[in-house]
Write a protein that binds this DNA or RNA. Structure first.
Lengths: 159, 159
DNA sequence: GAAGTTCGTTACATAGGTAAACAGTTTTAC
DNA sequence: GTAAAACTGTTTACCTATGTAACGAACTTC
């Protein structure tokens, strides 16, 4: 009865009104992701590094001599997708594929000095971009957000 | 000095170690988004509705007689991208393009009964998917996450 | 009534990603 | 020992989700 009245007054089924996209975490997650990703692109786009390439470089610097398969696993993408990324980084001379004695299948990814330098510059730019984008959040709020996102990851990336 | 010792013991430059991807909100946002999106796809994939199409249907049900341009604006995508989405929804008979008296350029999107029914079923499935995926979070935590994501959106979608 | 704007649409371009197959190489099973 | 299985990097072919640029038709402004 009250439902019917509301429906008539607004033209919206209240059952639908109370269950719209804005209440969904997934929808808000995507919208937020698009915003951050767009700003990231603006930040590092001049440098010519996409998020994927930046992530790969970061992990190579962090874990020198990592193999492509390990790197793909850490990044959560397919091995095949990594080839182009490593090609790009090698073309920029940020790393090189080095043979590994004892296993001729694998090639270790070793960052060059240029790669480490480029990474330091890039991470500084990315930090500045996040500081700017999340300027209206307190350190505590950012920490909370980070930990909640990690909880989601922990659930989904469980092996 | 302590730095040098750490570097020698782990092989990792401490300046790099303390600034890796895991500390970035953007990186965690993307990883979390991929997980949620993948599960969403599994949930609704059988139904044949992508997230985009689901969102569009939701907004059409929520705002009957919305035009494509308005819908695109609400979804944060280009007008041109909406054509295929509306085509898909129309092919499923979930809505139809209706002429608007007084402006022959625009076409109002009006959901059919089938569309409303499909939406009710879909939103229930999506809610179940989120309940399952975020089962280890309290209601308060989910609320916090939602509000932090909306803060990001508010910043980026400012008109 | 001319100029500018808006609407839906098409034809691209691009980025990110998957899936399948491959030839070498190594490991495992018997 | 050797045959089968598994793994590595790679290529190729696809798919999906976007953005960009242009267009004709319709509307608005002045």
């Amino acid at each position: 009865m009250a439902r019917q009245a509301l429906k008539r007054s607004t033209g919206i089924d209240p059952e639908i009104e109370s269950s719209d996209l804005e209440h969904l975490i997934g929808y808000n997650l995507k919208r937020a992701y698009v915003i951050v990703q767009t700003d990231f692109r603006r930040t590092l786009g001049d440098d010519g590094m996409s998020a994927r390439v930046f992530s790969a470089l970061s992990l190579c610097v962090r874990y020198p001599n990592i193999t492509q398969s390990e790197l793909a696993r850490k990044m959560g993408i397919e091995r095949s997708g990594l080839v182009a990324i490593v090609d790009a980084l090698e073309a920029k001379t940020y790393l090189r594929r080095a043979p590994v004695p004892g296993d001729r299948r694998v090639q270790a990814l070793v960052p060059t000095d240029a790669g480490r330098t480029a990474y330091r510059e890039a991470i500084a730019a990315v930090q500045a971009h996040e500081d700017r984008l999340f300027a209206d959040m307190t350190a505590g709020e950012k920490e909370t957000l980070l930990s909640l996102l990690k909880r989601i990851r922990a659930r989904g990336e469980a092996e």
